[in-house]
Amino acid sequence: MGAPIPRFLPCGDTAVTVEFGTEIDDGLNALCLVFDAALAEAAIPGVIETLPTYRSVLVQVDPLVIDMPAFETRVHEILAGLATDGRPPRRWIIPVVYGGEFGIDLEDVARSHGLTTEEIIRRHSSRTYRVAMLGFLPGFCYLSGADPSIALPRRTSPRLKTPAGTVSIGGVQALFASVEAPSGWHLLGRTPVRNFMPDRDPVFLVGAGDEVVFRPIPAADWDALDAAAAAGEPVAELVAA
């Protein structure tokens, strides 16, 4: 692929952001993920950890092992040989209880767009989302591919606490949360899926580059699925790999 020329943005003396663009764009994000994988495969001495985002990759380095000019040279070498990853993405079916106590903003979102709650659910659950990155807290899935017809700016008054598993929208983005946390997003529903469990293998179930489809389920199914998820079962269905 023809990779754009990156910008190298120092983050203190032990990290650097390799930035490929300034927009939220699936193409840029795909480049970040492929570059991140190639960087890991290169096993450059002094590179400690990487974190891909929508449009950049944060790289933690040991400056006593590799200096910035040498690191930048290696990055350009990797980019010159970078090839498109042809592997199909994994696709997960994520069960969601919409509305009521599980999605306390669903009615407000519907009212804001002059739609019924059923139509909001239909539009939200009919999309195939792409996991652009994990961020904010462990296992939080930031999703591209949201329906612009139901987009809303984030809340003017963020909540100090929202439950683990919230499924929400904010601006043109969608989110599948992992742990209890503050949020200014609009909560449409909740899933019993635990995307982050530190004692489970794998620790993260759904990862960057995967696809997600939300499947509405009745509130009556919640207790059984939540108990299964708490016991370590995926609950989410993997339908492609």
Rank of each mutant, 00 (worst) to 15 (best):
T128D: 11
M133D: 07
P63T: 10
S149V: 01
R123N: 03
V57R: 11
G145K: 02
A37Q: 14
E119K: 07
T50F: 00
P52W: 06
V57E: 08
P52M: 06
G145F: 04
L58W: 10
G99T: 09
R122Y: 10
S125I: 00
T84W: 13
I150T: 00
P153Y: 00
I93M: 14
V109T: 01
G103R: 03
E41I: 13
V61R: 14
R154Q: 04
V59D: 09
H124D: 05
V97C: 03
W92P: 01
R91W: 01
R127Q: 11
L134D: 07
V34F: 08
A83H: 14
A40G: 15
V47R: 12
M68T: 09
D108L: 10
G81H: 12
P52Y: 02
E119V: 00
C141F: 05
Y142G: 10
R91I: 14
V61A: 10
S112I: 02
V34S: 15
F35C: 09
F35G: 11
R74T: 09
V34P: 01
Y129L: 06
G46H: 13
D67G: 09
L143E: 01
I94T: 04
I48D: 15
A83I: 13
M68S: 12
T128Q: 12
D85L: 11
Y129I: 03
E101M: 07
Y129W: 08
I44E: 10
L143C: 03
W92I: 02
E72V: 10
G86N: 14
T50V: 03
A151I: 00
R154I: 01
C141Q: 03
E119T: 08
H113S: 02
P69L: 06
P95F: 11
I78C: 02
F140C: 03
Y54G: 03
E49F: 08
R55H: 09
A110Q: 05
L51P: 05
E49P: 08
E118S: 14
A80M: 09
R127F: 00
T156A: 09
L58A: 15
E119M: 09
